[in-house]
Nucleic acid binder design. Structure first.
Length: 334
RNA sequence: AAGUAACGUCG
């Protein structure tokens, strides 16, 4: 059974979900782990219907889902916004006696938060018996969805510390995001001090968040200094810096950054181009990058890219061209 | 042998 489960897992993680399924179907012995592995594999490949069919079949065959099974199926409901299935799972969690399981509770928080059901999220959180970093961090994360709720998010950060739970870089990533959206500078400094105290000031996730904070405060230099400290620069890192240039109105600098990024070997994605386009001031530059994105990098323009172009055209006073572009934009952007 | 929060654009 163990070998079988491991095989299914291996194929699923290699991206061969078909092979995983073949192995799974041909196994003579399957336990909860085998089923959960297969279900998780399907979910990672966005095969949600298959996942839930398997979830039903396993029970028909007398195998009860355990906490791990619930963790991945709840996540699937969160991602696809499958409300009926999510409620059903929540009920099943309670029936299975897993109502007090911390990780399962966290998955529920995350699901309701992804659905934007504020009430349900809070209800689950309050009923939890043991809350860990993930529970608190997920709550704080929920409050980053809406700028108006920033203060509430910060209050969770305070309560978390009172509760003796140590925030981690992910927590601080969210907290910094809240701070910058509220433009709370003094509080931001306090947080920064805590981050340094915790020895987390050089973790990539925090640096990426800091680049953003600095750029919103107009501190381009600090954004750059932070950028230098990032060990593994990802697309997020680069686009945060591109946005910093864009906010600063420095197209040439953005272009230089973009070129550096290309020579570092990373492949730009649609978001990187959005940032670059938002730094463009002239129609020629903007068109050039737009075409290069589509033709050289094979990225299908989204409505947002067109909108970015429309902005530049508008600023340049080319209203007719802007209108043409808007009309050719069939994706419903404005 | 399976598992929950993870940083960038606009939203």
């Amino acid at each position: 059974v163990q070998i079988g489960s491991a095989l299914v897992d291996m194929y699923a993680k290699c991206g061969c979900i078909i092979d995983a399924r073949n192995v799974f179907d041909n196994l003579s012995q399957r336990n909860v782990i085998t089923w959960s592995t297969m279900i998780t594999g399907c979910i990672q490949h966005a095969l949600y219907d298959d996942a839930f069919q398997l979830f039903d079949s396993m029970q028909e065959q007398g195998i009860e889902p355990n906490e791990v099974t619930f963790l991945s199926t709840l996540k699937a409901c969160a991602i696809q916004g499958n409300i009926e299935q999510g409620w059903r799972l929540h009920a099943r969690v309670i029936l299975s006696g897993l109502g007090a399981h911390t990780a399962v509770g966290n998955a529920l928080i995350d699901m309701y938060s992804a659905w934007q059901s504020h009430q349900d999220t809070c209800a689950v959180f309050q009923r939890m018996q043991k809350r860990d970093v993930v529970s608190w961090t997920s709550m704080i994360g929920m409050y980053t969805q809406d700028d108006a709720l920033g203060l509430e998010g910060i209050s969770y950060y305070g309560k978390m510390k009172e509760d003796g739970i140590q925030p981690n870089p992910i927590t601080y990533g969210y907290v910094l995001k809240l701070m910058s959206s509220m433009a709370a500078l003094e509080q931001g400094r306090e947080i920064h001090a805590c981050i340094i105290e915790g020895g987390m000031e050089s973790t990539d996730i925090i640096c990426n968040a800091l680049i953003d904070v600095y750029s919103r405060c107009g501190r381009l230099m600090d954004a750059f200094l932070t950028f230098e400290r990032v060990h593994r620069k990802t697309l997020s890192t680069w686009s945060a810096l591109l946005m910093a240039c864009a906010r600063h109105g420095d197209y040439l600098l953005a272009l230089e950054i973009f070129t550096d990024m290309l020579s570092s070997g990373l492949k730009p994605d649609d978001v990187v181009f959005l940032c670059l386009l938002s730094a463009c001031k002239s129609v020629t530059e903007s068109c050039r990058h737009f075409k290069s994105m589509r033709d050289d990098h094979g990225i299908i323009p989204r409505p947002e890219h067109h909108n970015s172009m429309v902005d530049v055209l508008g600023h340049a006073g080319c209203l007719d061209e802007a209108e043409d572009l808007l009309e050719s934009n069939h994706f419903g952007g404005n």
